[in-house]
Design a protein around this nucleic acid. Structure first.
Length: 431
RNA sequence: GUGGGUGUGGCGAAGCGGUUAACGCACCGGAUUGUGGCUCCGGCAUACAUGGGUUCAAUCCCCAUCACUCACCCCA
């Protein structure tokens, strides 16, 4: 139906958007403090970018992309995430020529064709950061710290950082081989899902919820057991830096990320109170991504956090976002002549930075007072026929109900009289 | 894609085989001449998702469809 929105999408109404502005403001401030600058990439990209960037074995690519052919016969996909696009932009704009690391953040809608549920939508919004060009484990920790700092500023509690290292292509390959070797004799015991994971991505068997699979995988070597010296050393340093930053974390050897590009550090931040989709932030290092996309080998590390899940978390924690509303002034005008005056003054006050409004519904005096109250106006300025006759207006303080009458000279002669009134009003409103 | 739950006016929410289908919120108007919040009074609206069926009779029972929702897979 033309009057209902597509499945899995949301309209954010004024009551929502004020909250988004607040949260986005915190994110921008924080990113800026940490030295990240905003990048905005297209909402759609060549499909090829995600095939190569996100990975052909991932669920995202296999069943969740919004892909279509445009009129120029190009295969286009609505971005399911923004790391691949950011990496593409890094290469395209030759950012390897900039002082490294290049620290970027983004914010915006992403699209995945999935069955919606709590905390999951077809159009959802992510804030993410990416730091390119440095292998320093301190940067991994900085990224995690930034996320945790953000939650702290919002006042969220109960979050857990789960941390792991998925190794590099070398040690991961070794691990995969060992894992398959160990599991192969028991293949028939595994659930259908895990049997298909066995070849594609055996790591995923670690977080299968099936009891039989769990029993089997319990004895299997974890990635941690197989890390090469470099990866192990990197992982240790990430932990050291996290501790230095005062960020508590739990190493979870079973943590695997669903995107192919991750190397070494993988982490997620979860809050179980928001439902089954409890990951509020996920990220890690992706040292091979830029090269995979055709750029010079450049390491990177970053995360994405889901905005909708932030709001779910705020609800779960019963945190009210401070919303600032209320106007400085509301004009109450009766009669056509008075409305003209009020309209003119209102416009002039707004030009001077005053926030205000007036009635456009031909309401009665009383109803206009109600309207002034409803928008939480500090002052009501009353311009009625009596006032017009006596060359005066009434300015009423809505909080304490006091009011005073201001004489206006030549109230019927527009320009210069208006200036006097405006100055007088501004003096009082800003007092 | 698979499974469960739900679908009553703008929102929330009763009801139940036969009613003028409650109520609350919101909104609009009024409570002596042009002064808001509290209170009181009144008003408001294409309200029983859609299509079939059972029945003398269906908002209520059955079926289908659609929508929403939760969960699985996976992810933010």
């Amino acid at each position: 139906m033309a009057t209902s929105r597509p499945k899995g999408t949301n309209d954010f109404l004024p009551a929502d958007t004020v909250k988004w502005h607040y949260v986005e403001g915190i994110l921008r401030d924080l990113a800026d403090q940490y030295g990240f600058a905003e990048i905005r990439t297209p909402i759609f990209e060549a499909t090829e970018l995600f095939l190569r960037g996100v990975g052909e074995t991932t669920d995202i690519v296999n069943k969740e992309m919004y892909t279509f052919t445009d009129k120029g016969e190009r295969s286009i996909t609505l971005r399911p995430e923004n790391t691949a696009s950011t990496a593409r932009a890094f290469i395209e704009h030759k950012m390897y020529g900039l002082p490294q690391p290049v620290k970027l953040y983004y914010m915006g809608p992403m699209f995945r064709y999935e069955r919606p549920q709590k905390g999951r939508f077809r159009q959802f919004h992510q804030f993410g950061i990416e730091a390119f060009g440095s292998l320093d484990p301190a940067l991994d920790s900085e990224v995690i710290t930034l996320a945790m700092e953000f939650y702290k500023r919002l006042g969220l509690n109960g979050l857990q950082v789960r941390l792991n290292s998925v190794g590099c292509p070398v040690c991961r390959g070794e691990h995969k081989a060992k894992l398959q070797e160990m599991l192969r004799p028991h293949l028939d015991v595994l659930c259908a899902d895990c049997q298909s994971r066995f070849e594609r991505n055996p790591l995923r068997i670690f977080d299968c919820k099936n009891d039989k699979c769990q029993a089997l995988i319990k004895e299997a070597p974890t990635i941690a057991d197989c890390l090469c010296d470099e990866c192990r050393d990197h992982f240790e340093k990430v932990k050291t830096y996290l501790t230095a930053a005062g960020i508590p974390f739990a190493v979870d050897a079973k943590l695997v990320r669903g995107l192919d590009y991750y190397t070494k550090t993988a982490f997620e931040i979860i809050l179980t109170e928001i439902g089954a989709q409890s990951a509020i932030c996920g990220g890690g290092r992706y040292d091979g991504l830029i090269e995979d996309l055709g750029g010079e080998a450049t390491p990177g590390v970053g995360f994405a956090l889901g905005m909708e899940r932030i709001f779910a978390a705020l609800d779960a924690n019963q945190i009210e976002i401070p919303v600032e509303n209320g106007a400085d002034v509301y004009f109450i005008a009766l009669g056509e002549k008075a409305r003209e005056k009020a309209f003119s003054w209102l416009i002039q006050l707004r030009r001077r930075g005053i926030k205000g409004d007036m009635d456009y519904m031909a309401r009665s005096f009383k109803a206009q007072m109600k309207a002034a109250d409803r928008i939480d106006a500090k002052y009501a300025v009353i311009v009625g026929e009596n006032e017009l006759q006596n060359n005066e207006i009434i300015i009423k303080n809505m909080a304490d109900s006091s009011q005073e009458t201001i004489k206006t000279e030549q109230i019927s002669e527009a320009a210069e009289a208006a200036d006097v009134v405006i100055e007088e009003l501004i003096r009082r409103i800003q007092k």
